[in-house]
Design a protein around this nucleic acid. Structure first.
Lengths: 233, 233
DNA sequence: AAAAAAACAAGCAAGGCTGATTGTAATTTG
DNA sequence: CAAATTACAATCAGCCTTGCTTGTTTTTTT
């Protein structure tokens, strides 16, 4: 009871203290170094020593901030999660400028959204994220750490899309189909790109997908797209 | 000069010898164990010792067959390459029975081909292969080993498709578009499936893709699909 | 100003992985 | 049958990675 009051004052010190800021700064330096390692040498060969080297802090210092490798990875994933959300928003916003968004025809807004999404998927951060997901398949601990992040990210992307294309969100099942096809196809392209460069085909594919999305929603009015295929066996 | 004749006789012995067969058998046992490790514990944490354990041979025996880890991995990739080719052919053949292939309508053959391709992409072997490709990004040695395998496999799949759908192959650019969209989309689905289970959406997506492929080739006659989108900026 | 706590540095011990060495049994060749 | 070769087994040394422990400097509290 009396202790809680004491802790209250201590907590206040923590926030106002100057070394707390310094601490937070080196913390971010370490996390940035961790992401840099994921990108440059891959998750598998990222060791705590290499992260410390890249961050230019001693291993002891790092161990002070992150007592175990697991906690460091967990924090790095959380950090990456935040950066990905920001990058996604930035890519979409740069592709679709809000000012002129409403003056653009739907299909053009569509196309720009896809291009923004593609820019996001082509980033180093997404590459690292994908690699983490793959590694998580056989690493239960990492998988547990990622699960939460994946779910939250998907949710956020869905929200973002609804905000950008309000007229789509009302389409229900049709909207889900459009989202699925866009995500699956674009991610397939991104992964193929990671494995072996195929730039030439990517641009054509974005054009094609853009046309199909437009078609889905136009044809949806005439009840021709989704019911046609869902009526098959 | 005289030595070459001697070596000729020795080479003959190698093939006829009984222990040569035994040797080849344990070789395959080791390679199977390697692939099993890739699948169950992942490439990153696959060690030579674990492979030897799973193959139930001593580390010394394995070192006899594969002097270094690199050579073992190289052989395992080659082995996997062969198994993938076989599995691909098997999945397609099971989906499209050659007997009735010509009696089926084009779109039904289409759909079955996609389902077969999906079965292939859902296999453990493909999962392991994809993981190897991802690991190769930051492992130059592995990347070099894979490059050759990837190119040969793509070539083989292209050949196989042309054989199964001879009427498509004549379409030129349209055929490439259809191949790209099928591969990108299906692989995107497979990768998403690896990361987090999304069965429900997969079946719907195959239906949709099947319809689009049919459309591409029907519309191609009327010059409406590819020129429409490639004429955009 | 003294005490307490935090930030940071450096070295140590245990375990895992790779490659090399040495040894043994079976088989083929001459 | 003897020699050489092959298949296989087991152990050892060196390196890397992780986490723990001890020590030093700086800052905050009282």
């Amino acid at each position: 009871m009396a202790e809680s009051a004491d802790k209250g004052t201590k907590k206040a010190r923590d926030r106002t203290g100057w070394q707390a800021q310094k601490s937070a700064m080196t913390r971010d330096t370490i996390l940035d170094a961790a992401l840099d390692c994921f990108i440059t040498i891959g998750y598998a060969s990222t060791t705590t020593a290499k992260i410390a080297d890249k961050a230019k802090v001693s291993r002891g210092a790092m161990l002070h901030h992150f007592p175990s490798k697991t906690e460091l990875i967990q924090a790095a994933v959380e950090y990456l999660h935040g950066k990905l959300l920001y990058l996604y928003a930035k890519c979409i916003d740069e592709a679709i400028d809000d000012e002129e968004a409403h003056s653009l025809p739907v299909d053009e807004r569509n196309r720009r959204g896809l291009q923004g999404y593609w820019n996001y998927l082509s980033s180093d951060l997404f590459t690292a994220y994908h690699e983490l997901c793959v590694a998580g398949r056989t690493d239960p601990e990492l998988q547990y750490i990622l699960e939460d992040s994946i779910a939250r990210f998907d949710e956020n992307v869905a929200q973002s899309s609804k905000r950008l294309f309000p007229e789509w969100a009302k389409r229900g099942e049709l909207y889900e189909l459009a989202m699925d096809i866009s995500q699956f196809l674009m991610q397939g392209m991104a992964v193929s790109q990671i494995v072996s460069q195929k730039d030439a085909r990517v641009s054509r594919m974005i054009d094609y997908l853009s046309d199909r999305l437009e078609e889905i929603f136009h044809a949806g009015d005439q009840d021709a797209a989704i019911h046609r295929h869902s009526s098959r066996k």
